[in-house]
Design a protein around this nucleic acid. Structure first.
Lengths: 151, 151
DNA sequence: AAGTACGTTAAGTATTGACTGAACGGTCTG
DNA sequence: CAGACCGTTCAGTCAATACTTAACGTACTT
């Protein structure tokens, strides 16, 4: 980690990811992998990020579970290496799109729980339902378009 | 708050909003206003949500600041009433789109901090930049389309 | 088989952050 | 002017959570 600018990039990534309700170290890990030119071992990551191996272990596994990082292994080496998974951004965004569906489901639930008569509440919930269904579908279409542009 | 289904709707809204790194009470407040057929006073909100007036005051003001709720006043009444602002969902989503710009800016920052030679890191950062620029523009276009559909 | 290297798990700690209770400032009423 | 009402602010409390240290399980090496 010689370059202080890169270090700052990693820190900013940590803060950005923290706003997604994820550990800051998780974001730093992701940032570090982003600017790495080769897969990094767990020990290397712990060293560069100045955190314990336990923390790296937890966050790296989480990172892998959500499809952002990949665990790669090398012949004749017991260590785990990690790098960025292809399409990690789409994956990250796809995950966020799910919240649109959650909101749409919530709106439907709300509609079911109030009376059938026209009311401000009903109108709002209907608009909410329509909006989140629209956004959910359209953003998924966007991701599809992006994938096609790349592939 | 007679209806337990509505109560559950409010709770779910609290949890959903909490994942956006916002106070749970903030989400409950928003949910309550969603199903209210008239503007609610600060005291009413505190009573229905079973939280202190101080908490409602803080969260309601925050809710107003980010454009989700509106403070409405009534002639001859000193109290503050709140209801849902028109276009609150668009506004909420627009705010989330800003994170795309943040990520795009971060990618640009990262590119500036690494060498100019082709490398895996550079390729990833370029893809990141392209992706978030694409998403930022297109999602904004989606919001525009929605607005036109409504207006 | 003992020793070593690696990753995971568990208990303990520290920090962050949201809520409560209480005090305050301001405005209207009697 | 005294008293009540309303909203805000501040200090203190409490809970959630992410990190560290330490112990463990496993597999490879000599």
């Amino acid at each position: 980690m010689p370059n202080p600018e890169i270090e700052q990039f990693i820190e900013r990534m940590g803060l950005a990811v923290e706003r997604l309700s994820l550990p800051r170290t998780f974001g730093r890990l992701f940032g570090l992998l982003m600017v790495a030119d080769r897969p990094l071992s767990l020990a290397e990551i712990a060293d560069q990020l100045q955190v314990s191996k336990a923390s790296v272990s937890t966050n790296a596994r989480l990172c892998e579970q959500v499809g952002l990082a990949r665990r790669v292994s090398t012949r004749g080496d017991r260590r785990d290496f990690y790098d960025i998974a292809p399409g990690s951004f789409e994956h990250m965004t796809r995950h966020r799109v799910e919240s649109f569906h959650v909101m749409a489901g919530l709106a439907a639930e709300g509609l079911a729980s109030i009376g059938d008569e026209p009311s401000p509440a009903r109108a709002r919930l209907e608009e909410m339902l329509g909006f989140y269904m629209f956004m959910g579908e359209e953003v998924e279409a966007l991701l599809e378009r992006w994938r096609e542009m790349k592939g």
